[in-house]
Amino acid sequence: MSGIALSRLAQERKAWRKDHPFGFVAVPTKNPDGTMNLMNWECAIPGKKGTPWEGGLFKLRMLFKDDYPSSPPKCKFEPPLFHPNVYPSGTVCLSILEEDKDWRPAITIKQILLGIQELLNEPNIQDPAQAEAYTIYCQNRVEYEKRVRAQAKKFAPS
């Protein structure tokens, strides 16, 4: 494992614990031996107030490669969400998460999670990743928002 990646992720964890947006979660997972795995984080993004996503808490896994922060983490909703920019596998399609697009090593975990929260309610229809959600979003916004509200209710924190 890269010392650069681990040191950056340790800084990220410290900064997150000191200050993070209300309702968001970002925690490194534990290895079988109980030690912390900084390369694999369990996160959760709350649906934004005043949107059909409100009330939901959407679980996301963030996986970092050894060359982080040169390369972005892979962000994957578990379980996958109904959304035009979420692949059926759950992987998020967002330009700041793509090395050859808008990724920059200075982007923080907090910025990534806030960017994904923004994307939930403002899909990028130029870059669809899920045919069904994309089609319904474009053709029947009322039905799309109904499905999103049902999903938010399903993923409401207990």
Rank of each mutant, 00 (worst) to 15 (best):
Ser2Asn: 08
Gly3Ser: 04
Gly3Thr: 08
Ile4Glu: 12
Ser7Leu: 10
Arg8Thr: 08
Glu12Arg: 02
Glu12Ala: 00
Arg13Pro: 02
Lys14Ala: 01
Lys14Tyr: 06
Ala15Met: 06
Lys18Ile: 05
Asp19Tyr: 03
Asp19Ile: 04
His20Ala: 00
Phe24Trp: 05
Phe24Tyr: 12
Pro28Leu: 05
Lys30Pro: 09
Asn31Trp: 10
Asn31Ala: 08
Asp33Ile: 03
Gly34Asn: 07
Thr35Asn: 02
Met36Leu: 14
Asn37Tyr: 13
Asn40Pro: 06
Trp41Asp: 00
Glu42Asp: 12
Ile45Asn: 04
Lys48Ile: 07
Lys48Pro: 15
Lys49Ser: 04
Lys49Asn: 10
Trp53Ala: 00
Glu54His: 08
Gly55Ile: 08
Gly56Thr: 00
Phe58Trp: 04
Lys59Leu: 10
Leu60Trp: 04
Met62Pro: 04
Leu63Ser: 14
Leu63Lys: 13
Asp66Trp: 07
Asp67Ser: 13
Tyr68Thr: 06
Pro69Cys: 03
Pro73Ile: 08
Lys74Phe: 15
Cys75His: 04
Phe77Gln: 00
Phe77Arg: 03
Glu78Phe: 04
Pro80His: 12
Leu81Asn: 05
Asn85Ile: 03
Asn85Phe: 09
Val86Asn: 00
Ser89Asn: 06
Gly90Asn: 02
Ser95Arg: 01
Ile96Thr: 15
Leu97Ile: 15
Leu97Asp: 08
Asp100Glu: 08
Lys101Ile: 08
Asp102Met: 12
Trp103Arg: 02
Arg104Ser: 10
Arg104Thr: 08
Ala106Tyr: 05
Lys110Arg: 12
Gln111His: 14
Gln111Ser: 15
Gly115Cys: 06
Gly115Ser: 01
Glu118Val: 10
Leu119Ser: 06
Asn121Leu: 07
Asn121Gly: 12
Asn121Tyr: 09
Glu122Arg: 10
Gln126Lys: 12
Asp127Cys: 00
Asp127Ala: 10
Pro128Glu: 03
Gln130Leu: 13
Glu132Ala: 10
Glu132Phe: 06
Ala133Tyr: 06
Ala133Asn: 01
Asn140Asp: 13
Arg141Gln: 14
Arg141Trp: 10
Val142Asp: 15
Glu143Ser: 13
Tyr144Ile: 03
Glu145Met: 11
Lys146Gln: 09
Val148Ser: 03
Arg149Thr: 09
Gln151Lys: 05
Ala152Val: 06
Ala152Asn: 09
Phe155Glu: 02
Phe155Ser: 11
Pro157Phe: 12
Ser158Trp: 11
